[in-house]
Amino acid sequence: MAARRLQRRAETRFPVITHIAERMVSVNIFDSATRLAAQCFLTAVPLVFVVASVAPEPVRQQMAASIRAVFGLSGAASDQLQSLFGSSDAEVQNAVGVVGSLMVLLSATAVSRAMQRLCKRAWEIPRSGVHIAIWRWLVWIAGWICLLVVQEPVRSGFGVGLWLGVPLTFLFQTLVWWWTQHLLLGRLVPWRPLLPGALLTGGAMTALSVTAGFYMPRALDRALGEYGSAGSVFVILSWLIVLCVAVAVGVTVGAVLAQEPFLARRLGSPVPNRHGARRG
């Protein structure tokens, strides 16, 4: 009884904070983000190298430059990445093969499914009774690969500098995560309610992209010096988890804010389950 009274008092005094906390618990933020990061590392990263093996040389070099920009790679880590992307097309294609490439592509849809589950949990969409077309997983993966190629030019402001690159990155990331939610939710939520989550996620990813340039080179150089290549794997995986936590928090908090009365009336947001339960 005392716990319920405290909960009701908190809901009355700090409704938005309470609703955010409840939704983050229901989404299981850290578990969802860790699974998403693991799927990215195990399936999406191999897909990048498979795509690079069949891509023209300029596209391959642009992908390498974008990966360096995303993770802030420099020094020995950057040299290792360049050696991987510098392998000849025949070497990589012979190592992977057609069947292997198809398996890598199908495995990469695990990232799409993990991201879709996160979006559905954030918006309290039930698992049962809702079927979303499988082609959306493949489209999201294809879009993700295309967007990766242009990361480096956007971050550098197309050569102008960070003063233009940072705002462009924020705009770019916002549009990407706005589209991601709309695509993977299968139009179950209209465009406008998805905007707060896109803005929050875009802002978080932009801030982390700037932070990566300061943190990752030092962390990777230290890990390579002490533990070799295995150390760099742990550093990159840890950074992927940080990125995925930012995505999970941004999408979830954005969903809650969009369903609060002040914004819900303006955005046409779906009614949260707590309101539906009270009406029922």
Results as ranks from 00 to 15, higher is better:
166 V>S: 05
107 S>T: 00
101 S>A: 15
104 V>T: 13
150 V>D: 01
160 V>A: 09
153 P>L: 06
102 L>M: 09
179 W>Q: 10
98 V>I: 14
161 G>E: 05
179 W>C: 08
119 C>G: 00
209 S>D: 08
140 W>Y: 13
183 L>K: 07
97 G>C: 05
212 A>E: 07
178 W>E: 05
121 R>N: 14
117 R>A: 11
124 E>G: 09
203 G>P: 09
165 G>I: 10
134 I>K: 15
87 S>P: 00
194 L>S: 06
94 N>S: 13
105 L>E: 01
144 W>I: 00
153 P>S: 06
103 M>W: 04
133 A>C: 05
155 R>S: 12
152 E>W: 08
87 S>I: 01
200 L>V: 08
167 P>R: 05
161 G>Q: 07
97 G>D: 03
206 T>D: 01
196 P>K: 03
113 R>W: 05
89 D>S: 15
165 G>C: 11
98 V>F: 14
85 F>D: 01
200 L>Y: 01
195 L>M: 07
207 A>E: 06
196 P>H: 05
129 G>I: 12
90 A>V: 14
193 P>S: 02
186 G>M: 13
205 M>T: 02
163 W>F: 13
166 V>F: 08
113 R>C: 02
164 L>A: 15
150 V>A: 08
105 L>H: 01
204 A>C: 09
179 W>G: 05
103 M>K: 08
146 C>T: 10
87 S>R: 15
197 G>V: 01
129 G>N: 11
173 Q>V: 04
207 A>M: 14
194 L>F: 07
107 S>C: 02
125 I>E: 10
178 W>H: 15
105 L>D: 00
137 W>V: 01
106 L>P: 00
167 P>D: 09
93 Q>T: 03
173 Q>W: 09
107 S>N: 04
145 I>G: 06
163 W>R: 13
208 L>G: 09
201 T>W: 02
112 S>V: 02
129 G>C: 13
146 C>S: 14
130 V>I: 10
204 A>K: 01
197 G>H: 03
166 V>A: 13
92 V>K: 05
193 P>D: 01
99 V>F: 04
150 V>G: 04
123 W>N: 14
96 V>Q: 03
98 V>P: 04
156 S>A: 12
135 W>S: 12
116 Q>W: 01
110 A>S: 12
130 V>G: 00
128 S>K: 13
170 F>M: 14
96 V>H: 06
188 L>C: 14
147 L>F: 15
170 F>P: 11
209 S>Y: 02
105 L>I: 08
193 P>H: 02
197 G>A: 05
162 L>W: 07
156 S>E: 10
147 L>C: 11
143 G>C: 11
123 W>C: 12
101 S>D: 03
106 L>W: 04
168 L>D: 05
157 G>D: 01
105 L>Y: 05
189 V>D: 02
110 A>D: 09
89 D>R: 14
160 V>Q: 04
130 V>R: 03
105 L>V: 10
150 V>M: 10
138 L>R: 00
104 V>Y: 02
125 I>V: 15
125 I>S: 10
180 T>H: 12
123 W>M: 14
132 I>T: 11
122 A>L: 12
95 A>G: 05
99 V>P: 00
121 R>A: 13
200 L>P: 03
145 I>A: 07
177 W>F: 15
95 A>V: 00
163 W>C: 07
103 M>H: 01
166 V>M: 09
200 L>F: 06
107 S>E: 03
105 L>W: 08
129 G>L: 12
108 A>W: 03
91 E>L: 09
160 V>F: 09
125 I>N: 10
153 P>D: 06
148 L>V: 08
